[in-house]
Design a protein around this nucleic acid. Structure first.
Lengths: 141, 141
DNA sequence: TTTTAGTTTAGAATACTTCCAGTTATAAAT
DNA sequence: ATTTATAACTGGAAGTATTCTAAACTAAAA
């Protein structure tokens, strides 16, 4: 797991300025394993930094995404979730409440032949499982 | 590949009414292998049926989704795409323009252990490859 | 036919995200 | 330390995609 300091070092190395807002957002993201949305992070950071803007959270997440510092998960119901753990891994998504958890399992290696690639220059792939989480199963009864 | 008539029969069997709008939307969807958005379908159907409403397209797609008659793909950039081919298959998505194509390859079987499921009741899984399509590669030069 | 319950329509409402203009702060240069 | 140039921040407006609403309409059953 990459640390907060490593992410910050990477940003500086690329010539971006370090600000208290960025540090707070990166820390909040790294201390949160629930795959928070931008708004979740905004609410967390606002407790320590009441004047921060939601736009700054979006800007910082976009910046992190560009340098490979966060995975943006656009899986269900219009709200993007962010994952600080950027190594390839499988996600498990609840189709009722949208909750996302990581699956601790080696990602199966899937290769596409040249024909299957259809001329695309491949960048990677995602595997997402769908299901109903324990909480929502309980609500069904 | 399931036909338009089979989809319509399925809707009737479940007690839904058949309307010219629904038929037109289902036909437009089945004749389109580009994974259209709701708006794409709206624009296509409007040529034959100028008074149709975008809301009807959304309603019909939601209805189809409920009976398993279409796959809703929420992969990139906020706009849902719809796929009339509902057998499990791999998708290839362009990260520059959002284009989606099907991959003709048997879907690898991936099993999760009880521990890996974390109490979820599984419903299925998706595999999505990301890359840059031939058109967008050309634009890069 | 008549009935009725489901469907369509247009536009309003909502939800998430991006954009914008003015202000402020960082980091480099002096 | 001070200055300076530029990047980043803020709050609110704007932009998209989708859902909601209420009135008018219509498919299908009686």
């Amino acid at each position: 797991m990459v640390t907060v300091e490593e992410r910050i070092k990477e940003l500086k190395k690329r010539g971006f300025k370090m600000t208290p807002q960025r540090r707070a957002i990166i820390e909040a993201l790294h201390n949160d394993h629930t795959h928070p949305t931008a708004e979740d992070l905004y609410n967390k950071v606002k407790r320590m930094m009441p004047d921060i803007s939601l736009a700054t959270v979006y800007n910082t997440l976009e910046l992190l995404e560009k340098i490979g510092g966060v995975l943006k998960l656009e899986v269900i119901g219009g709200k993007a979730h962010y994952d600080p753990f950027t190594e390839p891994h499988i996600h498990l998504v609840c189709t009722m409440c949208g909750k996302i958890v990581d699956v601790e399992k080696p990602v199966p290696r899937i290769e596409l032949s040249e024909e299957e690639k259809q001329g695309f220059r491949l960048q990677g792939y995602n595997i997402v499982f769908y299901g109903i989480c324990p909480d929502c199963q309980r609500k069904l009864n």
